[in-house]
């Protein structure tokens, strides 16, 4: 079964229709735990983008030799390999970026979104389609994390990207881990509402 979507459709599908955080509700641990600032969201988004694209391409390339009964261990192994390689390469050649991203990269091994995309998409589709799907999912994850980070950073610390915009801290509550649940829920409702309103406007 090959997908009939174009590469652009695959990318927008990952960002909007099947957004990992607001639609598929996957990888909730980072969404709740780490989305305290916009910068955190961006860093984690970049890391997920790379791992997702590399893993999707690898699995898509080897899809015919992976025994169906051990596909999940193979996916985990692939993800772990790429995470380790990216971690080591960054530490060696981009120490400044690694100082900020290092802690996030190691977390990715356990992200549900990547395994799920390999299972749902990459193991059935061509390498090119998997590449674009990986890009879309990575960008969608980045978008979700950054928008969550924006709300939480603004309300929790009164800043955006570290710049003081409000001059005071409205609700420290939003920085704490459990506030992530409220935030994710509210943002999910918000995006669903926008889509509803958009559909209604289109029909009218």
């Amino acid at each position: 079964m090959a997908t009939d979507k174009t590469s652009l459709q695959l990318v927008t599908n990952g960002i909007l229709n099947e957004n990992p955080i607001f639609r598929l509700v996957l990888s909730m641990c980072p969404a709740v735990g780490i989305s305290t600032t916009v910068m955190n969201g961006f860093m984690l988004g970049v890391a997920v983008l790379f791992v997702q694209v590399f893993s999707s391409c690898t699995i898509s390339l080897f899809k015919n030799v992976i025994h169906p009964r051990i596909r999940i261990p193979t996916y985990t192994l692939t993800i772990a390999t790429w995470v380790t390689v990216i971690d080591m390469v960054l530490a060696a050649y981009m120490p400044a970026a690694y100082a900020k991203m290092g802690i996030f990269i190691k977390l990715i091994v356990a992200f549900a979104i990547i395994t799920m995309r390999l299972e749902m998409f990459a193991c059935k589709e061509s390498v090119t389609a998997s590449f674009w799907d990986g890009v879309g999912m990575g960008l969608g994850f980045m978008f979700g994390m950054m928008s969550l980070g924006l709300v939480r950073e603004l309300l929790g610390q009164g800043t955006i990207l570290g710049h003081d915009v409000l001059g005071f801290k409205p609700l420290l509550f939003f920085v704490l881990p459990f506030a992530g649940f409220f935030c994710v829920g509210l943002m999910m409702a918000f995006f669903n509402y926008i889509e509803l309103a958009y559909r209604r406007a289109k029909r009218a």
Partner: peptide
């Protein structure tokens, strides 16, 4: 693959 990457980047 991981071992190779380690050898190449460790220095």
């Amino acid at each position: 693959i991981m071992g190779g990457a380690f050898v190449l980047t460790n220095q």
